[in-house]
Amino acid sequence: MVSKTRLDWLALAVTGTLTAVSLVWQHREANRSSGSRPANTTLIHSARRLNRGAGILAGAVLLDSAMEHYRGQFENRAMYTPLITATLSLLASSKGFADLTPHSGKLRNGIYIGTVLTGVAGSGFHLWNVTKRPGGFGWTNLFYSAPLGAPAALILSGVLGHYAERLRSETRNIVPRVLGLPAGQSMALMSAAGLIGTSAEAGLFHFRGSFQNPAMYLPVTAPPLSAVLLTASALAGANRPHLRWASRLCLRFTLLLGVAGACFHALGAARNHGGWRNWRQNLQAGPPLPAPPSFTGLALAGLAAQRLLDEEQSVKAHYLGWHP
């Protein structure tokens, strides 16, 4: 039993706390990285961050699909697939995170590509599941049949991981490029797209939950804002330090929000009838615990991108300074 006023206060307090923590973190990080670092280390550092992001996403997908497909009684053998690929992606990511060398892992890369393909196939399956039900592509099915956004998280995990591996092999170029764009830029755009997509999914399900708790607005505001700022700072020149500062802050907020979201979802399950004692029902019927950390994974990727952007732009600035 939680009154509306208490929920309002809770949402405010959490927003305030997350902002404060993000600010402190930002401040300390700025102090720490005031000295310049060699680009190679940055690239590997970014790659590892990406690996970590990919791993968090894979972990979220693993838990989420295990629970949701259990609920769907694994009525189709293919429903085991995301469990396997997400596990592999998780393993590859932890291996990648531990890897300090500037060489891309072939096996890891293969796994990541497989993960992307599984995600694509999963999206197809889910789309088919939605359209074959009465009501077709209507709200009832968007709310309650196979969620369209869920397999996309698998795609994102694979893409992040694949990106990490590409980045490792680009360490020799002055401005590393991936998929034709400077690495920082393309990574920023990709992370932003992921944030927007995941936020859209949160929006759909929080709409289903009638935004009964004001905190439910956070994941539909902070991540898109991060995405916009990240995109802007990727496209804007080097002389926009305020923009980049805001982008980093917002990403840090989003990263923390992923963790706070899992706690909110645990609170949500507790508010369901029977609370945690009725866990066999409420773990499934309540808000999904593994869903919010997807934001953490994507925000990590965004922060890594932000860092690369900074360096790219300082390299560019360096060049411009040399040849006026």
Partner: peptide, 16 residues
């Protein structure tokens, strides 16, 4: 009560 049901669709059965 308190436990109701989760699986609502056709041919679906909760473990209880």
């Amino acid at each position: 009560n308190p436990r109701g049901y989760v699986r609502m669709g056709p041919d679906s059965r909760d473990p209880w």
